[in-house]
Simulated assay, not measured.
Amino acid sequence: MKHPVTPDGRYFVVRGWLWRMARPDFGEQERTELVKRLMTARRAVRDAKAAADPQAVAAAHRKVDAAKRALGERGSVWWTDGAPDFNRHMAKTTLYADWYAGVARSRYGGF
């Protein structure tokens, strides 16, 4: 994977920010269908912006949000151990700070 994934598999890291992974309990077919829905919605956002249609942009963003929620990337967390959600938090300000410091040093030769 291009971006490092936390040891518990809940997040991947982009430029120091944690982003929630999709639920791991999907079958391949279900995950493929949901990703297809997400990508279709993202293309709809692009097309609506190109057409300068604010209502279509808003509708497309709602579809993106619905697809991400279905994947488990937004909304209620998919894990059941009561751990907090750090989606869209800086890794260095969370319980993943030590892990990320090691990843950053090994990947980037330091900060």
Rank of each mutant, 00 (worst) to 15 (best):
A58W: 02
R31M: 11
A50V: 09
A59L: 03
A50N: 07
E73D: 09
Y100V: 02
Q55C: 06
K49E: 15
W99R: 04
A56Y: 05
P84T: 00
K36T: 13
K63C: 13
A52D: 13
N87W: 06
D65G: 09
A59V: 00
V57Y: 01
G75E: 08
Y100E: 06
H89F: 12
V45M: 10
A51F: 05
W99N: 05
M39A: 11
T80Y: 05
A56S: 12
D81P: 00
R31W: 00
A50Y: 00
G82N: 01
K36Q: 10
P54A: 11
K49C: 11
K63L: 10
A83E: 05
A50T: 12
E33K: 02
F86M: 14
R37Y: 00
A91R: 03
K92T: 15
E28K: 12
A97R: 05
V77L: 07
T40D: 15
A50L: 11
K68V: 05
A58Y: 00
R37P: 04
T40Q: 12
A67S: 02
H89P: 14
E33R: 02
A50P: 02
R42P: 03
A58T: 15
L38W: 04
E33F: 02
H89Y: 11
A66V: 05
A59T: 08
M39G: 04
S76F: 02
K36H: 08
G82K: 00
E28G: 13
S76I: 07
M39R: 14
A52I: 11
L38E: 07
W99V: 00
